[in-house]
Design a protein around this nucleic acid. Structure first.
Lengths: 183, 183
DNA sequence: TAGCATCGTTCCATAAACAGAACGCCAGGA
DNA sequence: TCCTGGCGTTCTGTTTATGGAACGATGCTA
């Protein structure tokens, strides 16, 4: 079944991530198992992707590895979990929606691969976007009034006109996109 | 709150988070179980905190709920960020974590109720925060260099010193907080 | 060389997470 | 009133994640 395929991939990915973090900390498998209060066998099979760990097991590992629980799984959130808008070279994952009296706001994680710029049509009157760059460098905004931003910086524009996004770096750009629609 | 986080508490927190997301989407328990390919009993006990779900189970839920896996781990309350330490009047929900070579970034939804300002201690060298306001008006930043922002606007500051957040409106302020930690 | 510690893997018995069925509850319709 | 259908919880048998005990491999010391 598809769920099991995805699960197997996921277990593999999380296992690799744990192994990578452990080695990065210079810990042996036995030592990490001891610190986390897990059996060595459990950790061995988890790291090699042959286990489907429980929440409790992951939590036990997060403390000695010095990362948050989300840090153990944060890499795999993208492919199926969210709504991919574009597909080739860019993807968006819906993180949150905030609804208030006067406006509704959607929060996305936007990933842009190097390549041609991505053009988005008008979103209607009153809609605004703000982009906070997490990694990489991006050129984005309304066509004719593009701006650039690097990690930690942000851009904003009214999106009632055609606008675009473009990676300026070799690697992927990750950014947080906040879109506000008036009600 | 929930700083000590026994495993049981964690299951409780994740269960509540799932239930909250499900209700927010207007889904019945049976319907979500069907979409996720899980048994109703599994989901019922998971939501009430009586299960210690596996990674695969959490993953199966993340897609129909439209959030990433990290979005289900709302546990981040808040040992290291310290934002909601006072508990009354402010809360943070972890939306996403992005890990890159040079930095790790966490995305939160921050809600601040009207009242006294919320003070957060230093987060260590190199840590930066950026706040994008969604609703309401906020005064925030490093103490001594506070800024103000309304819907769609943003503020940023280095958080290697005491900083604070304060609602300037009658209603709650909702904002997106992006915290970058160098590695 | 032998002796010993530590490494990561594999095997086993137990506890528990799972799917699905059975259950009681509450609504709306005939 | 009795159905019928959906809801969420509880129960039951099966599957599987777990801790711990083997195991062989490797490295270090005498």
């Amino acid at each position: 079944m598809t769920a099991e395929d995805g699960g197997a991939d996921l277990a593999q990915a999380v296992g690799s991530r744990v192994r990578e973090l452990r080695r990065g900390r210079g810990l042996s498998l036995s030592e990490l198992a001891r610190q986390a209060g897990l059996g060595k066998g459990t950790l061995s099979e988890l790291e090699s992707g042959r286990r489907n760990p429980t929440l409790e097991t992951l939590y036990a590992l997060s403390a000695p590895l010095g990362v948050g629980l989300a840090g153990l799984i944060a890499e795999h959130v993208d492919t199926k979990a969210g709504i991919s808008v574009d597909g080739y070279g860019a993807s968006t994952v819906l993180l949150d929606v905030v609804t208030a009296a006067e406006a509704s706001t959607e929060i996305y994680r936007l990933t842009i691969l190097p390549g041609p710029r991505h053009v988005s049509p008008s979103h209607g009157p009153g809609v605004r976007e703000r982009l906070v760059v997490v990694t990489g460098r991006v050129r984005a905004g309304r066509n004719g009034a593009l701006g650039e931003a690097g990690p930690g910086e942000s851009l904003d524009w009214a999106s009632d006109g055609e606008h675009s996004y473009e990676s300026l770096t070799d690697g992927p750009v990750v950014a947080i996109l906040v879109i506000t629609h008036p009600v």
